[in-house]
Amino acid sequence: MEKQSLTALVSAFARAYHARHNEVKVFDDSIARQLISDEEYAGISGNMAKAAAFFRPELSGSPEDALREVVDHQLSPTPLGRAAFTEEMLEAAVRLGARQYLIFAAGYDTFAYRQPAWAAPLQIFEIDHPATAEDKQRRVSALPIETPANLHGISADFREPNWRSRVLDCPAFDPMRISFCSLLGISYYLTKEVFRQLLSDISSMLPRGSSIVFDYPDELTFTEQAGDRAKMQVMMAAQAGEPMLASYSYTEMERMLEEAHLLIYKHLQPDEITAQLFQAYNDSQPEHAVIAFDHVHYVLAVKQ
Rank of each mutant, 00 (worst) to 15 (best):
K136A: 01
A119W: 08
F85H: 02
A98R: 14
E88Q: 12
E146M: 02
D135G: 00
Q115P: 02
L80G: 04
F111N: 15
L151Y: 14
A142N: 11
A131C: 01
A120I: 09
L96C: 04
V94L: 02
R82K: 15
H73D: 15
P77W: 11
I103E: 10
I154T: 08
H152N: 10
Q74F: 12
H73G: 09
A120Q: 13
D135Q: 10
A84D: 11
G107R: 10
Y113S: 09
P63F: 02
R138D: 06
L75Q: 15
L143I: 09
L151I: 14
V71R: 00
A133K: 11
S76R: 10
L151E: 15
D135M: 05
E64Q: 05
V140C: 01
R138K: 08
F125V: 04
L102G: 04
Y108P: 15
Y101P: 05
D65H: 08
T110Y: 02
A98F: 13
E146P: 01
V140Q: 06
A66F: 09
K136L: 04
L90V: 06
T132D: 00
E64I: 07
P121A: 00
A106P: 14
E134T: 05
E87P: 03
P79E: 10
S62V: 09
D135Y: 06
A120Y: 10
A83M: 10
A83P: 10
A149H: 11
H129T: 13
T147N: 08
G81F: 14
A105E: 12
A84H: 11
F85R: 01
A92Y: 08
F104H: 13
A112G: 00
E64Y: 07
G97T: 08
P130D: 10
A66W: 13
F104N: 12
Y113T: 14
P77M: 01
D128L: 00
E146S: 07
L75F: 13
A83I: 06
E91R: 14
S62T: 15
F104Y: 13
R82W: 13
Q74S: 07
F85Q: 02
